[in-house]
Each structure stands twice: as structure tokens, then as C-alpha cells.
Amino acid sequence: MGDDPHGVDLRHPQWTGLDRRGIGRRGRVGECRLMGSGQLPIARPLDPGLPVADELRRVMRDELRLVVDSCTTYASWQIRQRGVAIRRARRSLKRVRAVLELVKSGMDSEIHESLRVQARDIGRELGPLRDRDVSRDLLARLEKDAGGRRRKEAVRLANVLLMASQPDLAIRDHRADEEVVAEAGQDSVTLLDTVETVNLDDVDRDCVLDGFERMWDRGRKRFHSKDQDRDTEWFHDTRKRAIRLQLALNPLIEIRRPELTDSIRSFRRTANALGDEHDLAVLWDLVETNARHLGDPKVVKRIRNEIDRRRADLRWKGMRRGFKALKQKPAKARARLEKWWAKAAD
């Protein structure tokens, strides 16, 4: 039914958590747009011709409503699909943080930091639920991409043994998970109430352009860096910069849809490659922890080699994509967006 595995039809105007204003031709429910099959709902982008502060407040409000909806309906989702609810909530929280970064110079610094930390901490509450189950998908993909018969067999064996060591989703006690998600939902309601009333009077187009230029500059410096000391945390932080640019452009997409869609896609592909690399680092730790259950040391070595090979390939792809996406200098990228915005507003 619809897009939700727990049975709620997102195309029905009574979908909980959003304003009931009917459904538009693009599949909008209330203030949110429905993405394609398998994708996540997203707040409707700002209208370039309307007041910037009002529009970005609405975007943050509607993203937080998606978080609240995901958390409050979590227990009703099919058990094997609950990860989708967690993914939806965490992605909406990241979009809120990206908007906060855009409006930073137009807000009181202490209030801005408080909102940013609240959104971050709610995401962190939900993080372990996402990380715990990520190995299932990772091992399946690693087995598919593994080079050579012996490495495929080694990864397949690891898949069987590691999954056998974890409680099956259908019989796992989910009450602790539900308590964590319910608490995150309550924290999201508190954050939503704050966003509704926070002073955004100084947020205007120039403020948003300043935030965009600042984010572009930070991302460009990282992807064009010649720093040789690149450990797992370095790549993880680099990925966050790509994600933040991608999500910051989402609410601005109506300013110049074709070009900004291309930029969003480039940052998404960059973040996906580095995200898979980070997940493989998590899988590496899981293999290390369970090495004694995998038997033959040669099998463990083949798994490690396959993970290392795949991580190196993903790092190269991610950095190359980010370098190309951020080829333009920050001032020029800002001037281009400013020109498009002025034209769209007219």
C-alpha cells in the first residue's frame, strides 16, 4: 500500500503527521512531496518568490513532522521494514541541520547552536539501531562484488556465520528499540516547538547565500586537499560535508531545478561512495570481533583483503566525484546561485 511498509498509504490525504491539504499532481501530501518508489518523503522546497525566513521555517517544520511521524508509528511497521522508518527520520534530521547551516548568520549564535545540537543528538539516539543491522546488506553486496571464487566463498561463509550469531529480526525483543525511538520522537516534538517560535527575522536571501558559500568552501577545501593523513574518520567527515551540501540544495531546488538537480545528484553519488566505505569499516570491525568463529585464518584473511580492496575503490570514487562536483570556486558558485535566485523570484 502506498510507500510505507507498515501499511499506511502515503498517497491518502489522511496520512498522519502532515497538514491535510489534499494531493497535488506531483504527488504532494500536505507540505511534503512523495518521492519515487523506494525513496523517502521530503519537505516541499521553498518558493523563490516568497519570504525566505517563512519558507525555510516551513521546510524545517515539515521535516521534523516527518521525524515525529516516523518515530510515533515505528511500532506499527513490519519488523523487517523498521529500518526504513529509522532511515527516514535520520535523513529528515540531517535536512534540518543543513537548513540550520544555511541560516546560521541570520540567527542568534547560542540559539542556533542549541538547535543544531538537539537535531544532532536525536540522530545519534537512532544511530545504533541503523548501524546494528547494516551488516546484512553489506555482506550481501560484498559477496556479489567479490573478485575471485575463493573470496566469494569466504565472504559467503562470513555472511552465514555472522548472521547466525545475531538474533533473528522476527524473534528479537524489540521493546528496547521502541523505547529509544519513542524518546527520540518526544525530543523531536520539543525541537519542532522551538523551530515554530524561533526568531528568524534576520534570515534573508543574502544570509542563505552566505551559508551556501561557506558550506561550498568547506567542502571544496576537503575534496581538493592534498592531505596525506586520511584515516577512516577523515573520510567519514568528508562524506558529511558532501551530504550537507546535497541536503542544503534540496530546499533551494526550485530556484533552478535542472542545474541544481545535477548538483544534488553529484553530491549524493559522492556521499554514497564514501558512505559505503564507512559501512565497510564497520563491517571490518565486526569481522575482527568474530574472527574466532570464522575458523581458518586464511578465510579471515580473504575477507579482510576483499574489504580492503572494496574500501580503497570506494574512497577513490568518492574523492574523484567530490573533486569534480566542487570544481567551481565558492564565490563563483555563490554568484551563479544568486543570479538564478533573482531571476526565479521575478
Rank of each mutant, 00 (worst) to 15 (best):
D173R: 15
P167Q: 14
H174A: 15
D173Q: 12
N159G: 15
S165Y: 00
R149G: 03
V160S: 06
A170L: 09
R151Q: 07
D177H: 10
A176C: 06
L157F: 14
E178A: 12
G148T: 03
V160E: 09
E179K: 14
D177G: 12
E178Q: 15
I171R: 12
L169V: 04
H174K: 14
E153R: 06
I171E: 05
R149T: 00
A158P: 00
R149E: 05
L169C: 03
R172A: 13
R149Q: 02
L161E: 03
E178N: 11
R151K: 13
A154K: 00
A164S: 11
Q166K: 15
D177S: 10
E153K: 09
D173V: 06
E179F: 12
A176G: 12
R175C: 10
R172P: 07
V160G: 02
V160N: 00
L169P: 08
M163E: 04
M163F: 02
L157N: 09
K152E: 06
A176H: 14
Q166F: 07
V180S: 11
P167M: 07
D177A: 14
A154L: 01
R150L: 00
I171K: 15
V155I: 09
H174V: 06
R175A: 08
D173L: 10
E153M: 04
P167T: 04
A176E: 01
A170E: 11
P167Y: 06
M163T: 07
P167H: 10
V180P: 07
E178V: 00
R151C: 06
L162R: 06
V155M: 01
S165A: 09
Q166D: 14
N159I: 06
E178R: 12
H174L: 11
A170S: 13
R149M: 02
L162K: 04
R150N: 02
R151H: 08
D177V: 09
A170M: 14
A158N: 02
S165P: 09
R175L: 13
A158L: 00
H174M: 01
R150P: 10
V160R: 15
V160D: 11
L157Y: 08
R175H: 08
V160Q: 13
R156V: 01
L169I: 13
K152P: 04
A170Y: 11
V160W: 08
A154N: 02
I171P: 12
S165I: 02
R172Y: 01
K152L: 00
V180C: 10
R156F: 04
V180N: 03
P167I: 02
H174G: 12
R156Y: 08
V155Y: 05
L169N: 15
V180Q: 10
R150G: 02
L169Q: 08
R175D: 01
R175S: 11
L169G: 15
R172H: 09
V160T: 03
A158S: 08
I171C: 07
D173G: 10
L161F: 01
A170H: 12
R151M: 04
D173M: 11
V160C: 12
E179P: 13
